[in-house]
Each structure stands twice: as C-alpha cells, then as structure tokens.
Design a protein around this nucleic acid. Sequence first.
DNA 1: GCCAACGTTGGC
DNA 2: GCCAACGTTGGC
Length: 160
Amino acid sequence: MNYWLFKSEPNEFSFDDLLNMPDQTEHWDGVRNYQARNFMRDDMRVGDLAFFYHSNCKEPGIVGIVEVAAEGYPDFTAFDASDPHFDRDSDPDNPRWFMVDVRFVRPLRRTITLKELKQVAALKNFPLVRKGNRLSVMPVQENEWETILDLEERRQSPRV
DNA sequence: GCCAACGTTGGC
DNA sequence: GCCAACGTTGGC
C-alpha cells in the first residue's frame, strides 16, 4: 500500500465538495502534468490512502484523508472540446491523460498548514514543502505519512 | 538537442 | 495582485 497527496484549489473543488458527492467519491480529472499522470496511471492501487490538500487559498494545508477508489483510467475530460481541460492531442484510442477515483475517508481534526509542515525537520524531503514545487499529485513516504498524522494530535507547531 | 519564450502554478 | 519557479513548446 502506498500513500499520496492530492492538491486542489478549494474554490474549484474542496474537501467538502467531495463529501457531498454521491458515494462521497469523485474522479480526479484535469491533471495535465506527466509526472502526476504517471502516478495515477501506473502506481495507485485501490485502497491507497492520500492526504487532501487545499492550495491557492487563504490557508494552504492538509485538510483530510481520502482513499483511491478506482485505479487509473483515461481522463475523458481531455476529449471534450467544451471542457477547460480539453486536449486536442489526446487520442481516445491512445489517451494521454489518466485519472483515478478518490473517496472521502475522514477530515483531519485540524488543518495542518503548509507553514507548519515546512517547520518539520522530518519532512525536509517531502516534495510539497520544497520551494517552487508544482506537482499536484505526489507520493508520500510512510514515515512522512506517520509524521503528519502525529502532527494532527498536537495543538500547534511542534519541534520535531 | 539546446534554450528562449511562454503559460501556469501557487505562496505570499 | 505580484512574481518566482517550473514545465512545455517550438525555432533553430
């Protein structure tokens, strides 16, 4: 089993939006980055757990946990000329972009902010906290996953 | 294959 | 709203 992190802008699609979807599940469409695509197409398995991260908002941070509910399959929004993520070069017979389905698991007890994550020595190599990072889907190492869950139980920025 | 130009991401 | 950092594109 692997761990992941999904970024989303809450004014586009928030963790609460996922909670309100039928079956609390939604496809993760619109990823147009090859590295992120490869994770979804090749590496994610049903039951993998992931953090849900709110980006480009007032308080960027991890707000909840989701699970992979369906493994990689073609992102059909790439074939829809009316969709903002349309890609005329993605051939339905040889799709360029893939997505998975994610299902709501639980909210965190509190938002773990990017600011806080950046202060944790054990997360030094976590791609999310590295300067200029733009990956919207990324792996989380098991020790990083546990470090972050430990932070959840604390009231404020710890020294790790 | 190099790299400048461009568009996008996303924190601040 | 600004802008640094990044990935992609396309001319050569």
